[in-house]
Design a protein around this nucleic acid. Structure first.
Lengths: 359, 359
DNA sequence: GCCGCTCACTGAACCGGTTCAGTCGAATAT
DNA sequence: ATATTCGACTGAACCGGTTCAGTGAGCGGC
């Protein structure tokens, strides 16, 4: 009934706890026959180390943490995090290390959580996501000496190692593809400007557009469907609307697609749509979305390995993951019909069949 | 630098660890002035209890666990879980209890995980989701004596307490609404038949349809967009297609909507669409989806409270949460134009879609 | 035949909390 | 004035592991 302890094993084997410890941890100090006997007894009793006792004695928590601070409602349909968690998890499970997951209201409570976790020895390290400009978390973690791995570009990360993929290269791939198809006016609906990766993508977008001789425009949004749709309507209301829009996540891309169609535009004939991060969402809609794909789970797994190493005391550099690649689907095409043939734009407010859509 | 312990406080205060323990835990055994002095010192040193030491000594882990075994790819866009986790989390954070989250490959590894968590004293209890018919997890948890709360209907849950909402009532609400609008042939794209809540919904759907004199049909799917779309196409290919389709989650509803539109059907004129679980996804598409809404986060919070009580030794009954309510949006209407006027069915998928819609 | 070395194993301390049976001094009761 | 009670605090054990300085047996070398 009661869970067996090392003392139980020791008693059964006629040795001391110390001998049992040596045997179970594959350390020298016991003879081979004894070790086998002890292992057999442990097996028979179904012994498993008590994690608290082990943590107390070796000073490590045996768990890692992840705090996400985005509103739950947008988080819910953001496939990125579930994929990431799943990837991290898949790696951590290999040595039975649990992942402690929490959602925070804001960065202040996120930081408070780190302090408390560290003070209580709840976790051996954390994953840092959504890095911002002058991120307050970085100096705190460095001051605490708390192992951490940044998931994102190694900019403003101080001494913390980063696991990242080259978003700039991805942006370039998209723009080159669009330019090749003949697009000249392109727009981007980006994530919150304070986020590092938004900044990186913005810089790349602008630089690359200039280089390719494209007219570009960027609108900021918060990754939610509402703002994605609103930004799309704003862009398309321009007298010289873009012929292609790139979105910083797939949720906004889907709602952007819907918004464009509701305006009576054809996708991709009138406007092409590209999503960032290729989840099942992209294939849910019609036309299915061209997207920047990357193996998010593998990315998470890599981060988990790095964090394990970092927490183990090794101090290593950044790891660059493969850059996202462009998966071409139906939502991108040549700027065919063009703006001249758009339907319903001027008359716009008219009562087309879809009451709700017109607006 | 080093984290302060109770011994440090004791030394500074000129008392023993025991006195410090009494003071910090608000137990009798120290005088009021001494208690205040100790608390002040603890505050000054920034002391926090070492979770491993506390866990070791009081035999509780101070954490709860949640294992999800659904494929990561479908999980990613399934808003339900993120909302649920967020709700659980919001409740657990009140007493700083972490949630350990894991994804399993299958039920066997999920069970292995429970055994291992319990043997290692990693968690004090778990949340059980996606209960199946004759679920193998229930007897295992009962045998282990591991506290657990079932999130779902109290059927086949043995002695485990359940937190649930009345899906049957929700089904009834939907069917009555549809019947009132004049629908006579309705269909449902359900989740995997082995899941308890699928069975409950199926029974309610069939019973209620009979009661209302409706012709009903049910197709099984796996919650993924692909199968949702495929099921939808199959249903609509029928010589007497349904005028309304109810989906067991919002992902399938979205892809079903897309599939119907791709067939040249108008929603809701030709076919109405209802989603189960109302996430932001439902408002991403056009027309936005009528859905069964419930406060999933509150549901999670309730489950968390129940698990805390259960793990605390109190043995309590099931808790019924509010039944989902119907949020009416654009995807449902009277079976207006009817099957006779369907367009482009034969010619199928392709590009005709937008033209069909706009008019 | 004795020394020294290796190896297998022991005993006890330690990690940082909680708990409980005492001890001691002061206040209260008789 | 003495017995009793009570509150404040101590000391040590305990939770279940890890670690390390011994201890004693067995063996090889000279």
């Amino acid at each position: 009934m009661k869970r067996p302890t090392m003392s139980d094993i020791a008693r059964r084997a006629g040795v001391t706890k110390a001998a049992v410890s040596f045997a179970l941890n594959n350390r020298p100090g016991v003879s081979e026959p004894t070790r086998r006997r002890i292992l057999a007894i442990a097996e028979e009793l179904g012994w498993q180390p008590n994690s608290a006792a082990r943590a107390l004695s070796d000073g490590r928590a045996g768990a890692f943490g992840l705090v996400i601070d985005r509103p739950a409602r947008t988080l819910g349909i953001e496939p990125f995090f579930m994929q990431l968690i799943s990837g991290i998890q898949g790696e951590l499970i290999r040595d039975a290390t649990p992942l402690v997951l929490t959602m925070a209201e804001d960065q202040a409570s996120e930081i408070a959580l780190y302090r408390s976790w560290w003070a209580q020895r709840r976790v051996d390290g954390v994953f840092l996501v959504d890095l911002q400009a002058d991120d307050a978390r970085v100096p705190v973690l460095e001051e605490l000496g708390m192992p951490a791995v940044v998931i994102g570009a190694p900019v403003g990360t101080g001494r913390l190692p980063a696991v990242w993929s080259d978003d700039a290269a991805a942006v370039r791939a998209v723009l080159e593809h669009l330019a090749e198809l003949g697009h000249r006016r392109i727009a981007r609906v980006g994530g919150p400007a304070r986020l590092r990766h938004t900044m990186i993508r913005t810089a790349a977008f602008e630089g690359c557009a200039r280089q390719l001789g494209l007219t570009s425009r960027i609108v900021e949004a918060d990754y939610s469907g509402e703002q994605g749709a609103a930004a799309t309507r704003a862009l398309l209301a321009d007298p010289e609307p873009p012929t292609a829009i790139v979105y910083d996540n797939d949720v906004m891309a889907v709602s952007g697609l819907t918004a464009a169609q509701a305006l009576g535009l054809r996708v991709p004939a009138d406007v092409s749509v590209v999503a960032w991060d290729d989840s099942a969402l992209c294939e849910l809609v019609h036309p299915s979305l061209t997207a920047l794909s990357r193996d998010i789970a593998a990315y998470g797994a890599r981060a988990a390995r790095r964090l394990r190493e970092t927490a183990g005391g090794r101090s290593l550099g950044d790891v660059e993951d493969a850059a996202p690649t462009l998966t071409v689907r139906g939502s991108v095409g040549a700027p065919g019909a063009g703006a001249g043939q758009r339907q319903g734009q001027g008359q716009g407010q008219g009562d087309g069949q879809m009451e709700g859509r017109v607006e």
